[in-house]
Design a binder for these strands. Structure first.
Length: 570
RNA sequence: CGGGCCGUAGCGCAGCUUGGUAGCGCGCCUGAAUGGGGUUCAGGAGGUCGGGAGUUCGAAUCUCCCCGGCCCGACCA
């Protein structure tokens, strides 16, 4: 490709509406343009990167025996009704009707459709199967953001495994785990595999692949010494034990005028330190009130409560609901004396005595509370959100809590979808059994953005060679000089002949303009051909990463760079 | 969905307080010079000021409604 013929609309200024580095650079570099919130056009450069990520994913999927499909994005409601998700997945599903008034949706994931096709599997002898596709997903996100990192329409590689039993599923899961490792490695992403909540996808186990970046939205707790890593939706930690005094024979009510927060009670004369308080939160889960108790200095990880209660509907209770239930306002709530209600308590409260909590009467608290003696706990759960510096649950070293973006997620689904859709096979005994499924997703565009997020500097993107839109740019410094242009063209053609993705920058621009553009776009290698070097029989080789440059024999430049590129391709 | 900010030429912005013929920089086009890090000079093209309604002799500017975008929070497969 000659730059003069290419559509590469680079911009000198950052777009005003971009915040994330990848968003700014992908727009400035002429990779993407926004159409509306959460939808982007991929320009030729963007498409090239996207294709390269896709090719890596496809390659690794084929290596584990995956077979590529192409399912429709337009899906009848009926199939989603069979799994129950037409009703359970609400606002994020794009719904429409056809001219006959039939309900239709745009696929936001394809478990149902693949399970539907899997109905044609008849015998255990046909298992296992790994099926996958690259297909556009539509999700009406509440808040698209950060360019390609969170969008409403995007291409996902989604894969589904079909096995006779959970041992087979475990194997397929491991195969995908390993394939994902290789995929992200080849994309130049250090992806942390973390334990995650499965959310509405259901199933027994899931692992997310997370890339650390400030532009991310998920928090991951990780241990540098033993490798433990988990989404904070799921992470745990060891706590320093708190020594309790003997406490009182019964809770004692005392006046706390105006005290509405844990902090206020810490400072209050006769109050208590935060780790001697019980935090009382009220949620509405599946239309029932649920009282959640935590230690005063701990925060609730809402997803843990959602997972534990298998919540289809979840939200904080309103002030009115709380008053009706407990007779007081938030700030004076407690579990003592409450009966007939669901009260869940965090494990950190187990065995604690001499605690202070709200008295369910505004401006009054109770001290000397023995959690197990005085509160009718329905269930003990891990509800607490892990904090930076707490001890790793595996080895006790301090945990780090970092911001990340999720680039992949793999799930052990089990038989939920196969049962709902009727995907069954006959086993060795001639008995019909539901197929055991797994589901495995990678956001292709999000990967591309994550790569830009991780690999860039002040000048622009630094694409790993594997995913670069072009591997080499040959910059002809003065294309009006016939000898220079001819030499540059010859080098370019040699590279192309070697199977290298090269672009010839033959624009009649100042050298600085070409260099800036090449660096902004992030092409890993540059061969600079100019009259000055040519007079000495030399060309300059520039490596984007590290900005290393050296002069080489002009006749060997193509060969040298070809070798570098071939070495870097993985 | 709650809170905040914003919409003026392809991009980045000024003008709005105090209503009076729509500006700047970059980019783009033509010509010339220049040619190893966003060069310079001269000439030029390009805007129903997000949309609608209202007030006014007159609205980018004031009022109301709507649409769109960004950020924070909430939520998230």
């Amino acid at each position: 490709m000659r730059w003069t013929r290419a559509f590469i609309p680079t911009l000198r200024d950052d777009p005003a509406d971009a915040e994330a580095a990848s968003h700014k650079l992908l727009v400035r570099g002429g990779f993407i343009r926004q159409i509306m919130a959460g939808t982007y056009s991929l320009l030729p450069l963007g498409k090239r990167v996207h294709d390269k990520v896709e090719a890596i994913v496809r390659d690794e999927m084929e290596k584990i025996g995956g077979q590529e499909f192409r399912m429709p994005a337009l899906i009848p409601a009926d199939i989603w009704r069979k799994s129950g998700r037409w009703d359970s997945v609400d606002a994020s599903l794009f719904r429409l009707q056809d001219r006959h008034g039939s309900d239709i949706c745009l696929g936001l994931t394809h478990e149902e459709i693949f399970a539907w096709i899997a109905r044609e599997l008849r015998s255990y002898k046909e298992l296992p199967q790994i099926w996958y596709q690259f297909q556009t997903k539509f999700r009406d996100e509440e808040r698209p953001k950060s360019g390609l990192l969170r969008v409403r329409e995007f291409v996902m590689k989604d894969a589904y495994s079909f096995d006779l039993d959970t041992a087979g599923l475990d194997h397929a899961f491991q195969q995908h785990f390993d394939a994902y490792r290789r995929i992200f490695e080849r994309c130049g992403l250090e992806a942390l595999a973390v334990e995650a909540s499965s959310g509405v996808m259901g199933g027994s186990e899931s692992v997310e692949f997370m890339v650390e970046t400030d532009a991310g939205e998920d928090w991951v707790a990780s241990c540098a010494s033993c490798g433990y890593a988990a989404n904070v939706e799921k992470a745990t930690s060891q706590l320093e034990p708190v020594e309790d005094g003997p406490g009182l024979d019964a809770p004692e009510k005392f006046a706390t005028p105006g005290v509405r927060t844990i902090e206020a009670l810490v400072d209050f004369e006769g109050g208590a330190p935060a780790d001697r308080q019980i935090k009382t939160l009220v949620y509405r889960i599946n239309e029932k009130p649920v009282i959640a108790l935590l230690r005063g200095d701990h925060a609730l990880a809402e997803q843990k409560l959602i997972d534990a209660s298998e919540a289809a509907e979840f939200g904080p209770a309103s002030a009115e609901e709380i008053r009706e239930l407990l007779g007081a306002s938030p700030g004076s709530l407690g579990g003592v004396g409450v009966s007939g209600q669901i009260i869940v308590a965090d494990e950190a409260l187990r065995g604690r005595r001499d605690m202070t909590t709200g008295a369910n009467e505004d401006d009054f608290h109770l001290r000397g509370v023995d959690v197990e003696r005085d509160i009718e706990i329905s269930e003990w759960l891990d509800l607490r959100e892990v904090k930076e510096g707490e001890a790793c649950p595996m080895c006790g070293s301090p945990l780090a809590v970092r911001k990340t973006v999720e680039v992949g997620h793999i799930f052990k689904l089990g038989t939920e979808y196969s049962e709902a859709l009727g995907a069954e096979v006959l086993d060795q005994n001639g008995k019909s059994v539901p197929i055991v499924m797994g589901s495995y997703g990678i956001g292709v565009g999000r990967c591309a953005a994550a790569i830009a997020e991780v690999h860039h500097d002040e000048s622009g993107i630094i694409w790993p060679t594997n995913v670069a839109p072009f591997e080499v740019v040959v910059s002809v410094l003065n294309p009006k000089d016939v000898a220079t242009l001819e030499t540059g063209t010859r080098i370019y053609e040699t590279l192309v002949g070697d199977g290298i993705d090269a672009v010839l920058d033959d624009r009649d621009e100042r050298p600085g303009v070409k260099f800036k553009d090449a660096e902004l776009v992030g092409i890993p290698w540059r061969i600079t051909v100019g009259p000055k070097g040519l007079a000495k029989g030399q060309a300059e080789i520039f490596r984007r990463k590290g900005a290393e440059k050296r002069e080489v024999d002009v006749n060997r430049a193509a060969e040298i760079v070809s070798n570098h590129v071939l070495e870097e391709r993985r």
